[in-house]
Design a protein around this nucleic acid. Structure first.
Lengths: 147, 147
DNA sequence: ACTATCCTAATTATTTTGGTCAACAATGGA
DNA sequence: TCCATTGTTGACCAAAATAATTAGGATAGT
């Protein structure tokens, strides 16, 4: 039950993006630098998000990427689904035909419930929420210096 | 967020084991046959469970494995933790020192909450519960033939 | 002697984590 | 207008790590 680096880096990249000044494109190079991931890898991660229409890319000089929708309309569930292909912990949930035991398998039912729980959780968290959390954390971190 | 085959096969093996007549050892060979897994692979999966004391093995002729504790005292959380090493979706939760951003990272907080949710769910399901579910499913499957 | 687990190693497959390069698009300046 | 610069896109490739699987002999109990 590990989250792939795709999902982790991708989420961080989006969180970084949403925290930049709005209405102007943010360069992947800058996101990569701030988040400490390779630019090339980040490009790989970003591609499905562009295809899915979560972010838009502006090519050429002064280019970059920006959110295509308001941050409060982008859930973590959607992000991870795009980055990892799906949210299911076992593929027999999406594709029952692959396993002859699917219909009679009690473990499958349990994994299915688990997915539902995870999904509900991730569905309820938007990019905006994440940005808010980060802002609060930053503020809390600041005060540490005055102690 | 995929479950490894270790976790999947291992869980199925334990569920198979708990459904056999109690008080006599069940041979791995039989579990492997019923569950469609290679005996060698199953031995690998089983080893950490023996080490952890969830199941006990009896060597020699008429040997096999049996549960070392009552099935209602073995949770899915424990099983998966043993089979996969941990329950955490990201390693920075268990080892914050590995990542310099750990303290200030909002995504980490979210993954941590997610782990808590998953853990609560898996903690609440025991092998006994699983066996019960399977029994009900089997019964339901049977009735189909009479329709 | 037989049977079944145990142990160690080797092999194969898959995923992760990138790198290289050429093409394409927009901008700004000459 | 034309061209150099900046920057993204996409295809292809590859090393490294991890996971999955297979194999064979050692060991222990009946």
């Amino acid at each position: 039950m590990k989250l792939s680096t795709r999902a982790r880096y991708g989420t961080r990249a989006l969180l970084d993006l949403v925290r930049q000044p709005p209405n102007e494109p943010v360069q992947l190079k800058e996101i990569a630098r701030r988040q400490g991931v390779s630019l090339h890898y980040l490009e790989h991660l970003i591609t499905p998000l562009i295809t899915a229409g979560i972010i838009r890319s502006i090519r050429g000089a002064r280019g970059g990427v920006k959110l295509a929708r308001p941050a409060e309309q982008i859930s973590l569930a959607e992000i991870i689904r795009l980055l990892e292909g799906s949210l299911t912990p076992v593929e027999c949930i999406d594709k029952p035909d692959n396993c002859p035991r699917a219909a009679a398998c009690a473990t499958r039912d349990v994994w299915s419930e688990m997915q539902q729980i995870i999904q509900n959780f991730l569905e309820g968290i938007t990019l905006r929420d994440m940005a808010e959390r980060q802002k609060n954390k930053d503020a809390a971190g600041q005060t540490m210096y005055y102690v």
